[in-house]
Design a protein around this nucleic acid. Structure first.
Length: 429
RNA sequence: GUGGUCGUAGCUCAAUGGUAGAGCUCCAGAUUGUGAUUCUGGUUGUUGCGGGUUCGAGCCCCGUCGAUCACCCCA
């Protein structure tokens, strides 16, 4: 068995998990479309250079990278933003601005797997390109909030942590800290809530700062700070500001963000961030060697942490159950009570399916009781019995348990009509 | 990449160093044209893998793989 296991950090999706995944996809997709986003996709494999160009050599330690048969250095994508930047810059003249694009697909990071962190995970990416206004940032944050609400995750369960990179670049400038220390400094800020104060103070003093000074600056960066004014007014008008909390310690790694940065995080379980993103106005210029200077902002939401949160949130369970009930099973089940009628039953199976009815039947001879049990197991609303009374067939409503005899000629239209009726029965009272 | 804990049937878990088990699931029958419940019977294991100690290892030791937790990282 050992040799048959999945590769470390990769997952099987059994039907139950696959249904759950599809539920997540459908929700992401429908809310993104509600916001006027269009879907795109990029290759899962890219040249390793694409990621080096953006992030520098040291990042390859987390890249799922290898050489192909022609000795080319390639990587499974760790994120989609560089691919998006390439696509957007190479054909940007073909698209009206702003471009509101979303994508759903697998990403890969070569890390030690833990709960909420696998080597393959699925991300929902939403980005807006060609619009530098703070309204863009607000639109993205609003989208992330609506996605959470659509999952049944309520305001008491999650919040948006909001900050702005420019807060810190301005601060470092005021404090006369050399630009080359920016990355180091942001790393310190990123873990200022987790690290020991003494260690943080030591690291800060190395670049000429004190912990007291940094903390005082963070405390002053509340929702009245001018850096958040336009964004705040926008989200207040939408009625969404109540989900937002200013948190200057959010810097989102050390990569390409230039302005607004934010995270979606849960309030009750201490999970990793559900989503994160921000403004990255310089990336398109970097990717195109300065040929295309296009403002951009976006965020990504992963399926792994989201899935954990959904499983722990009671209010999210109702929507999941409803979706799974609607997706799973069949609408009708054909029972072959008399094997002599099987050819007629098979003809009806194909005719009903052609009419759009989700339908199953027993492919091998089975006792009638077993066939009804199978119909029940597959949540069929109707059983259609082919027996000695053919050319008439029995249609049984499996919810109300009523049964009626009908001519086989009229079967398809009768079933299609019956399925249009609302479900009534003792089980759903 | 570093350290801790863990790994027994499809699942959840038992088993002083001494014959590998239970519940659930699954399959079949009781029930030959109608779904529940119940009862009966049955399948499934190189105890993650490989070495070592021992008369004897699921149990002890070493290694390895995997899961998980803390680091690291979080594009």
């Amino acid at each position: 068995m050992a040799s048959l296991r999945t590769v470390k950090g990769f997952r099987d999706f059994f039907p139950e998990e696959c249904a759950m995944r599809n539920y997540i996809f459908d929700t992401w997709r429908s809310i993104a479309r509600r916001y006027g986003f269009v879907e795109y996709e990029a290759p899962v494999v890219e040249t390793t250079d694409l990621y080096r160009k953006k992030s520098g050599d040291e990042i390859t330690s987390q890249l799922f990278c290898f050489k192909d048969k022609a000795d080319r250095e390639i990587s499974l994508r760790p994120e989609v933003t560089p691919s998006l930047a390439r696509m957007a810059t190479t054909r940007h003249r073909d698209f009206k601005k702003p471009m509101k694009w979303f994508q759903i697909g697998s990403c890969f990071r070569y890390e030690e797997p833990q709960e909420g962190r696998t080597r393959e995970f699925i991300q929902f990416n939403a980005d807006i390109l060609g619009d530098a206004s703070s309204g863009t940032d607000a639109e993205l944050i609003a989208l992330s909030i609506d996605v959470m609400l659509a999952f049944g995750i309520l305001g008491e369960d999650f919040a948006i942590r909001l900050s702005n990179r420019q807060l810190w670049t301005q601060y470092l400038e005021d404090q006369k800290v050399p630009v080359e220390h920016t990355a180091t400094f942001l790393q310190i800020v990123d873990k200022i809530e987790r690290a020991k104060p003494e260690e943080t103070a030591t690291k800060l003093s190395a670049i000429g700062l004190t912990l007291e000074n940094v903390r005082a600056f963070m405390a002053a960066a509340d929702e009245n700070h001018p850096a958040f004014a336009a964004l705040r007014a926008d989200l207040i008008a939408r009625g969404l500001w109540k989900y937002v909390r200013i948190d200057a310690s959010i810097v989102r790694g050390l990569a390409y963000y230039t302005g607004t940065v934010f995270e979606v995080f849960d309030l009750k379980h201490g999970l990793r961030a559900v989503a994160g993103g921000g403004r990255y106005d310089k990336l398109c210029a970097l990717m195109s060697d300065g040929n295309v200077d296009m403002a951009a902002a976006g965020f990504a939401m992963g399926d792994v942490v989201l899935g954990i949160l959904l499983s722990k949130t009671p209010s999210a369970q109702f929507a999941i159950t409803e979706y799974l009930n609607a997706q799973q099973g069949v609408e009708a089940y054909v029972v072959v009570a008399d094997e002599a009628q099987r050819p007629y039953a098979l003809a009806a199976v194909q005719a009903l399916r052609a009419a759009g009815v989700r339908l199953d039947y027993s492919m091998a001879p089975q006792k009638v009781g077993k066939q009804f049990q199978a119909a029940e197991n597959q949540k069929a609303r109707f059983a259609i019995v082919f027996g000695a009374e053919y050319p008439e067939v029995q249609i049984k409503n499996l919810v109300s348990r009523e049964q009626s005899l009908i001519s086989a000629d009229a079967l398809v239209s009768a079933v299609v009509e019956a399925l249009k009726q609302p479900i009534v029965g003792p089980l759903l009272a």
